[in-house]
Simulated assay, not measured.
Amino acid sequence: MAIANESHQEAKNMASHHGAGRYWAIWAVLLVLTVVTVLTGRMHLPNFGLLLAIVIATVKGTLVALYFMHLSEHQGANRIVFGVSILFVVLMLVIPMADLGTRFRGSNPPGSQYSDLQPPDIGTGSQRGRFGGGMKPPQTKDTPETPAPHH
């Protein structure tokens, strides 16, 4: 019995069993990519670390969808839906990254990796917080508070 959107040939292909070797190989590739993700995540790669992690995650997700979910054996609409999904994932990642990378320097928040402006020093001075003022700094035990003289 075939699912509604599959042809008879697809039903025959899905009925044939594949050996476990292919699944073990894909599993080994997924493990290697996981180790690469962990190792590169511990490195300081400011220029392309995020891009590398996203590419590895996309490859891993594609392998899972193609082989463990058997999308590689499907024809027609299933392949189109999968391809369009990958295209939209790529677009949703590339467009914001391109926006961040080409932004005017002054529009990036101070202290971010895309800005050379230093973040404001908050909490050390008479004006703290968003509207200035703020709480009085705590007294330490070494410098006791002297009472005001009585007149």
Rank of each mutant, 00 (worst) to 15 (best):
V84P: 00
T34E: 10
E10T: 09
N78K: 14
H70Q: 14
V81W: 08
S107L: 15
V89C: 05
Q118K: 14
N47T: 11
I80F: 10
A65R: 05
W24I: 10
V35K: 03
G106W: 02
S7V: 01
L31D: 12
P46N: 03
V84T: 10
A65E: 08
S107G: 09
L71K: 11
R42N: 14
G61R: 03
L87F: 14
L63D: 01
I95H: 05
V59N: 01
F88K: 02
V55T: 09
R103E: 15
L117H: 08
L30H: 01
A20L: 09
R103P: 01
V38Q: 06
S112T: 15
V90H: 05
Y114T: 13
N5Q: 06
V32M: 11
G76H: 05
D116P: 03
Q118H: 13
M97H: 11
P119K: 05
V29F: 01
L51F: 12
V35Q: 05
D116Q: 10
N78S: 15
M14L: 15
G83S: 14
A53L: 09
F68Q: 01
G61S: 10
N108R: 11
T58S: 13
P110N: 04
R103Q: 12
R79K: 15
T37V: 06
E10D: 11
G101C: 05
L50E: 11
Q75F: 07
V81P: 00
V81I: 15
L50F: 12
L50C: 04
T40Y: 03
V59M: 04
